[in-house]
């Protein structure tokens, strides 16, 4: 792995399970947000419950569970604490192509968008060479065109808008 782990997470000797503490606190926050938002809809009595009833109590339950998780985590240590690592390059290399694909799909069409997405995704793996990525992108664009647009006949913009206008 050429990426270096980006985050310096705790040493193995840590007495608390930080991973679980973070998770627990996130649940508390989320639960509180859900319950708070649910209050803006009608909660109502159990016999005639409104739209806010179920989510309000789910939110409260989530807060309770979050507190419990955080509490338990404060007494237990994480056996895998040292294994915590992040690789921003992989992360971006997988998710960025998805976002870009979403942006380019309508104006640029399926074929070009797939090509761009595959090229971008090669960033995720240091093993992929530029030529390899080009080849992969070209092959996949054809597969996508034939498989999805022609054989499956999925409703999707295939070619760039500009090209279609120009051909008209």
């Amino acid at each position: 792995m050429t990426d270096t782990p980006a985050s310096g997470e705790p040493r193995g000797g840590s007495r608390t399970n930080i991973r679980d503490q973070i998770a627990g606190m996130l649940f508390v926050l989320l639960g509180a947000a859900i319950a708070y938002k649910a209050r803006s809809y009608t909660v109502g009595p159990p016999s005639n419950s409104g739209a806010g009833f179920f989510p309000f109590y789910l939110g409260l339950l989530l807060v309770g569970l979050g507190v419990a998780i955080t509490a338990v985590a404060s007494f237990k240590h994480d056996p895998d604490a040292e294994r915590f690592s992040m690789h921003p390059r992989t992360f971006l290399g997988v998710l960025l192509p998805v976002v870009i694909f979403g942006i380019t799909l309508v104006p640029a069409g399926l074929v070009l968008s797939a090509f761009i997405a595959v090229m971008l995704s090669s960033y995720a793996s240091p093993e992929v060479t530029f030529r390899g990525a080009l080849l992969n992108a070209a092959v996949l664009s054809v597969i996508v065109l034939v498989g999805f647009a022609m054989i499956l006949g999925i409703q999707i913009p295939v070619w760039p808008n500009v090209l279609i206008e120009w051909l008209r």
Binding site: V94, P97, V98, F101, G102, L105, L110, A114, A117, V118, S121, S122, A124, S125, E127, V128, G132, A133, N136, A137, L140, I143, V144, F148, I154, I156
Partner: peptide
């Protein structure tokens, strides 16, 4: 088949 050839395809298929 190396995974480096597979994952771009999975990403694109997922999007479509």
């Amino acid at each position: 088949i190396p995974y480096r050839f597979l994952y771009p395809a999975i990403i694109v298929f997922c999007c479509i």
